[in-house]
Write a protein that binds this DNA or RNA. Structure first.
Lengths: 240, 240
DNA sequence: GCAAAAGTGTTGAAGGTACACCCATGT
DNA sequence: ACATGGGTGTACCTTCAACACTTTTGC
């Protein structure tokens, strides 16, 4: 985030007055990436090419235009910088400590997003180098206060996944119960009893079997499920 | 919030450029107010004296200065506009819809605060008319999107009070279990079994009897309890 | 004594964990 | 046949809502 170089509209960066804080958005994009026979919870980082923190990894993001909504700005930067159009995007927290940007006082409205594995074409024209990093193998110092932002996003995700039905956002439209359980494993890091997991998630009514089965496995073919919730129903309370 | 008239530092309001959004803070201050033998959950509103929405009631707040932290700005506006110095202040959400201020694109970082009943001296010199309103008797249209902000703050408070020990913030340092139960009643609106409430809150270990008792009541004198948690322990996860 | 609030004990329903067990498929 | 993951049944434990009951004060 917080790059002054590329953006869609002409932005008079240097003409910005010094006496008022400016506003940007940063997005923690979560996804499951396959590493050595294991799905790992990962976040997408982009490498900065301009100072400050040139060459370091940072969260994607950028300015908020005049007349532009915050979520709208977040989606725009994701689209132009990573090519992603996440279905789940939620505001996380607003970081406004004056020292977080060495150049000037910039406020960052942080969001977090969940994207499916099959949406992972990282843009037709990614403007800058982008990489998925496993959340427990992040590059050592990140730009700005992005370590704190990611930590908090992880905390929120781990909390929310245990009471809200958002895990589906990391999977394709149809999935097996084992896949869904592995999502919880990747996020929470704790093993879950397959038996009780099935009962719990079936009783919640948020998923329903499609009737189809997975062929080709080495063992008994599992059922395919799909989520019954519309995207609107995923948001538990926050406003527009 | 969002008044352009009075503030501490000289603020070149009219020189602010049109092409970037500006940033303010708004605070939903919760308190228990006694109305007809009943404690009611109330929020503090101030009357606007300048357009837009002149004469209407609004949340206290104002600009964020350059080099000033967000929470710091929230506390400053509370201090100067209402005289309150709340012990509990937590960021709520950031509202950035372009249309929320008819004059210009202003982003509001909303906070919510809990204040005790004995801190209710509403400032030695309140710069503007301020009043406590019961949350279910708010004045009809509030300025800006303040209705939405209060609704969301209420939602958050009701959620949080059921899993975090923050109800004490609305009571004096020592209190009876009945008083504490009435806080939950005022916030949640649901009656609670005194028996089970006692057990639950005692088992949690967050309160401890002081040994003292309340004299002068018409019946058996209850014990006085006090909270064992330091203010730091009240925050469950969010960053600095 | 009586009313009212403080405080205790017990029961039963609900939910969750652990685990033994059966089912279906490829090799 | 058998290994492996899919799927079912059940017993146990913890938590919590409900409610009857006892205690302590002022009048």
């Amino acid at each position: 985030m917080l790059d002054t170089s590329t953006d869609n509209a002409p932005e008079p960066v240097m003409q910005r007055p010094e006496n008022w804080p400016t506003v940007g958005v940063s997005v923690v994009i979560f996804s499951l990436q396959l590493t050595e026979e294991e799905r790992r919870l990962s976040v997408l980082l982009v490498r900065r090419d301009a100072p400050p923190f040139a060459g370091m990894w940072a969260l994607p993001g950028g300015w908020v235009h005049y007349g532009e909504g915050l979520e709208q700005a977040a989606r725009r930067h994701l689209r132009t910088k990573t090519g992603l159009r996440p279905t789940y995007l939620e505001q996380l927290y607003t970081f406004g400590q004056p020292g977080r940007d060495p150049r000037e006082h910039r406020i960052a409205v942080a969001y977090y997003a969940l994207v499916r594995n099959d949406e992972h074409e990282l843009s037709a024209a990614p403007e800058r180098e982008a990489r998925w990093y496993s959340v427990d193998q992040l590059p050592a110092p990140l730009a700005f206060d992005n370590d704190a932002i990611i930590s908090y996003a992880l905390w929120r995700l781990r909390n929310k996944v245990s009471y809200a039905a958002i895990a589906f956002q990391l999977l394709p439209p149809t999935f097996t119960l084992t896949q869904l359980r592995e999502v919880y494993l990747a996020i929470l890091g704790t093993k879950i009893d397959p038996t009780n997991f099935r009962r719990k998630v079936e009783a919640s009514g948020t998923i329903v079997p499609t009737g189809a089965r997975v062929e080709g496995g080495a063992h008994r073919p599992p059922q395919l499920y799909r989520c019954t919730l519309s995207p609107d129903q995923l948001f538990t309370g926050p406003p527009s």
